[in-house]
Structures are given as structure tokens and as C-alpha cells.
Design a protein around this nucleic acid. Structure first.
Lengths: 138, 138
DNA sequence: TAAGATTTCATACTTTAGTATGAGTAGTTT
DNA sequence: AAACTACTCATACTAAAGTATGAAATCTTA
């Protein structure tokens, strides 16, 4: 955000300078008017691109950001959320167990708790619900 | 695409007109130079916004549109693709069978074929792979 | 410190998922 | 017509997923 302020500030300054330059050149007649016009055109073109990127970037990230509040509301613990993410990656209970260095029965316990908290009957349904609730990155 | 051509064409024409106007006003001294500068600034600002929107719009839609070619490349049949979508919705084999008015064993056959064609070990992995291949809407 | 939550694990069980095999039907293409 | 593909179904089996219960260790919080 600080970067944005600096960049836009610099652009505004450059603009004002160009406006003053245009008047001086209008009086002196040295600098060509086309150069001033081109410079202003380029600067505002860049500003347009940047503003648009900022706006669309927010829409993009907001659609992908994780709703951490909802995770707590559901009562999902750290470990359970970890397991949920691995499920969404398509791993089996055994694979998750190996990845997190615990036994398969531990994962089964976590999965059962996850299904209850997400009100899902299967792990595939849990994935779908988690996506709708925006608590997993997809 | 046609709209884009028309809009950009109109913008270019407006620009050229402004450039000529700037020269006339330069001679006659009637129109203020600030007006010309402001007009060019606005026009290029709009152009910048529009171009950026076009570019980002392509990235956005391409990230959501289904790659029908890849479905054929994988050899997935109509029915298999239907089943794949239902799997992604979190339905069980029995639920899919009831929804499509066929027996559960039929669904099992389809699922097995899907897993082979997607090179997946489980249905959850099939969902993940299908998402990466952009053949299911998510 | 006591209460509560989290994480871990096991055992036994039921259910669902997935594989392998074979086979019948319908539609399409050669 | 014969070959091919897609869709259907069944049976029998193995593997994975999920449930229920109990229990122990750790960690946090009142």
C-alpha cells in the first residue's frame, strides 16, 4: 500500500511538471507540443493500467483468500484443518498419515471429526463444502 | 472482438482529431491548451483501463472455462464425464446411480474407467486432477 | 492446579470404494 | 453384416473409508 502511495504521488508530480512545462514551451516555443502530448498520453495510459490492475487484483484475491474466521466458527482445530487440506489434495488416509508422521488411525479420527464439523457424509463432500465455505485454497 | 475493433478505432480517430485540433488552437489561440491535454489524458487513461481489462479478462475466463478438447484427449465418454462431475459434487456411488437412473455397479464400472483414464488412485485424486486439467467447472 | 481442549493411538466393526471378469444391448462405422 | 464403441449390469473379491469406544499425553486457560 505504501508503494502505491509513492508511485501515484510521483506520477501526479510528473504530471504537474509537464503541465508547467507545456506552458513554458507555449511561451518560448522551444519544446514541441507533440512531445508534451505524448508524455501525458503515456503517463495516463500507465495510470489506467495500474488502477485497473489494483481493482481486479482485489477481486481476484478475495475469491481465493481463506476465511479463517469460518474455520474457527466450525470448531476445526489446527490439525484437523491440515488433514482437510491433504484430503482436498486427493491423498488417502495412509498417505496423510505418512506425510504428517502419525498413524492411520489418528487420521481416521481426525477425518471423522472433520466430517461431523463440516456436516459431510464423505470426504468428497467435505471437499465440496470446504470449497463453498472458502476455507481451502482453490 | 468486433466491438473491440470498433471502440479502439473510434478512440484512435478521436485522438487524431485532438492532435489536429491542438495544432489549430496553437495557431488560432482560441482553445485552451489545458483542455487538449486533459482530453488526451482521459482518453489514454480509458485506453489503459480497457486494455488491462481485456488481458485480465482472458486470464479470468480461461481459468474457469472447461477444456473440452482435453476431455476427448483423455478418452472420457459422455457418461463418464457426467459421473466425474457428480463425484466432484461429493456424491456417493449409490447417490450417483439414483440420480442417473442406473445401478450402482454401473457407476462403479464408470468410476473405475475414469480413474484409469485420469491416472488417479482414488476419486478424491480424480477431482484434483480434473481441476488441474480444467475439465470440471470450479 | 484443575478443567478443558487437542492430539495421539488402538481395536473392532460397518460401510463404501474400487478391481476383475464376463456379458448383454444399442448405436455407429466400415 | 461385422467390427467397434458406449452403456449397462452382475458377481465376487480386495482395499479403503468411516464409526464407535476408550484411553493416554500434552497444552492451554481459568
Amino acid at each position: 500500500m505504501k508503494k502505491t502511495v509513492f508511485i501515484f504521488g510521483a506520477l501526479v508530480l510528473a504530471l504537474l511538471t509537464l503541465f508547467k512545462l507545456s506552458k513554458y514551451s507555449f511561451v518560448s516555443g522551444n519544446t514541441s507540443i507533440e512531445f508534451i502530448l505524448a508524455a501525458i498520453a503515456i503517463i495516463f495510459f500507465v495510470i489506467g493500467v495500474m488502477i485497473n490492475r489494483k481493482v481486479l487484483h482485489k477481486n481476484k484475491t478475495s475469491g481465493k483468500e481463506i476465511d479463517h474466521k469460518k474455520i474457527k466458527q466450525l470448531g476445526l482445530s489446527k490439525r484437523e484443518y491440515e488433514v482437510l487440506c491433504e484430503i482436498a489434495l486427493g491423498l488417502s488416509n495412509k498417505e496423510i498419515a505418512d506425510k504428517l508422521f502419525v498413524s492411520e488411525s489418528t487420521i481416521k479420527t481426525h477425518v471423522s471429526n472433520i466430517l461431523v464439523k463440516l456436516d459431510a457424509k464423505r470426504r468428497t463432500q467435505a471437499i465440496q463444502i470446504a470449497k463453498e465455505l472458502k476455507i481451502i485454497p482453490f
